[in-house]
Nucleic acid binder design. Sequence first.
DNA 1: TTTGAAAAGAGACAGCG
DNA 2: CGCTGTCTCTTTTCAAA
Lengths: 161, 161
Amino acid sequence: MDRIDRALVSELQRDATRSYAALGQIVGLSAGAAHERVRKLRERGVIRATTIDVDPAALDRRVLAYVMVEANAWMGDSGEALAALPEIQEAHVIAGAASVLVKVRTATTEALQDVLRRIYDIPGVSGTQAIVVLETFFERPVDPGHRDAAGRDPGQRDSGH
Amino acid sequence: MDRIDRALVSELQRDATRSYAALGQIVGLSAGAAHERVRKLRERGVIRATTIDVDPAALDRRVLAYVMVEANAWMGDSGEALAALPEIQEAHVIAGAASVLVKVRTATTEALQDVLRRIYDIPGVSGTQAIVVLETFFERPVDPGHRDAAGRDPGQRDSGH
DNA sequence: TTTGAAAAGAGACAGCG
DNA sequence: CGCTGTCTCTTTTCAAA
């Protein structure tokens, strides 16, 4: 993960449809070299997948809410029960008063209410508190950062593999 | 946005590197027809971009937190001030006690503290409350849903454009 | 790790059911 | 709207430095 890798990640986050020739030109590499680096980034799991960014409104999911789920029992493995609800986009175990924080997208506030009810039905759940989003300033990919050029970052510096 | 469009979106969310021939086979269309539909989905803005999904840990962002930002002044247009902090991945105006909810990824908890301090420096901010994530169950794309086949969904059914 | 080139494959664009 | 065919560009692979 040197500077070039970060630049490649940043560019691919912006637009992954460009050719390796175009990518290479941006980062100052030949097409083949750019391709080889991206291939390794995928292999290492830095790039997990190539996906599309979809407008939630176009899919009729105009209501966004974060829900704090309070539990009286251990919810360490109720991830599957939450994953079964397609309206839930993220689920995290959190420190603090609530036990789990989930991100929910629904078509209407009525549908949101229904999701809350279904969350409530999950064993161990003792309460929910919804935070409704009025306006989204922005949602963007993780920042690749821009550290030193030589690639002496801490962490995995795998050679072979 | 009929059933085929939703299937295409779903498949592209899973893996956008596949050929149009492969996509078409999955949804029961020729390569050309699949290509044409995807082109229109992009044109309409349903598909906003083709991107990569990056592992935050690989980019040295192992700490995830949600921060409730309380404000005493109107924060309706402080989106830019928040966007200036690269560690902030999302920022939403919310209903309720706090004014803004932001999603933050940092390398360490010390770095998180530093982000909180910088948020605090934004005019109008009167307080912050951080919710630290202990474990992420899942993070996934918006569900395209699976409604009726004929495409009689409400919303934009644009013809020309 | 990078480069350059050659082969295999996918994308763009027709005209036509 | 969708299918098939054609042309062009890209991805992929490989030998060499």
